[in-house]
Amino acid sequence: MLFRLENLSHQYSDGTLALDNVSLSFAKGERIAILGTNGSGKTTLLHHLNGILKPTAGKVYFEDKPLEYDSKSLLDLRRRVGFIFQDPNDQLFAPTVKQDVAFGPLNLGQPADQVKKLVDETLGLVGMAEYAEKPPHFLSLGQKKRVALAGVLAMQPEVLIMDEPTSNLDPRAASEILHLLLHLNTKYGLTLILATHDVDMVPLFAKKLFILSKGKLVTEGSPKELFSNADLIRDVNLRSPRITHLFEVLKKENNLPVDNQLPLTISEARKEILRLLNLEDAGKDRGEGESHERD
């Protein structure tokens, strides 16, 4: 296992028990979403994965070795496990985009000419190459998020942790960030872990889901499994994706013979509708345009 949390608890100095005996694990190359309401402990959990916070009880294992918190071990961990903060203003401190992206690689002791190349490449990857010389306060929020992403990607991490990567973004910017992340996962095998309460986005992104509520791990599984259990989702004050909810209502109220595995995304819903209309073949004829779906 890449990461394993064992009976992890974290109590803040004001007495709040933000994480309560959480145990979970996941493997390399996975796409993980940690779902929960505001204040459910998502951010606290993420902060344990690259040593920003130290557990008050329990242990964090990275590649089956317990995390150590001396500065050398932390530097080593942080090189491999990148962290993107929810508010890019927390992260972008340098006077220009280029200097900000260069910060991480320079801290890793890479030579200047290599860092320059890396900065250009990474800014190109996130589509911000033309903004290299701009100060961050000239950028929109979506652009700032991309630069923050570039600043972490330039350290060439194996794992990327993101706190609410799509929050406050317009639909297009959110969708672009999401597709960029999926691309990084499929092309470079980057392990992705994100915390979110955007339930419509989760099925498009995550293969595996952990649901937190009041600091406790409530359940884990694939989005399909978890969102089929409507009662559970409601108990933790979340909701199903809109499209799933629609099919749930059609099934319950209108007794439509919807499959027990409710569709979570537009493309799944499309298949299900065609099936219900006995038009499955029609769908196949036109080919499935799955990859271009948006939430």
């Binding site: 530097l75 401190f93 860092v115 972490v152 350290m155």
Partner: peptide, 24 residues
């Protein structure tokens, strides 16, 4: 608060007390 959060974010990118900049 901002100072606190910025420091955390800088630490997460390997800040060791020196701000290094690209000189070109």
């Amino acid at each position: 608060e901002q100072g606190e959060r910025t420091l955390t974010a800088m630490n997460a990118r390997g800040y060791d007390g020196n701000i290094r900049v690209l000189e070109d």
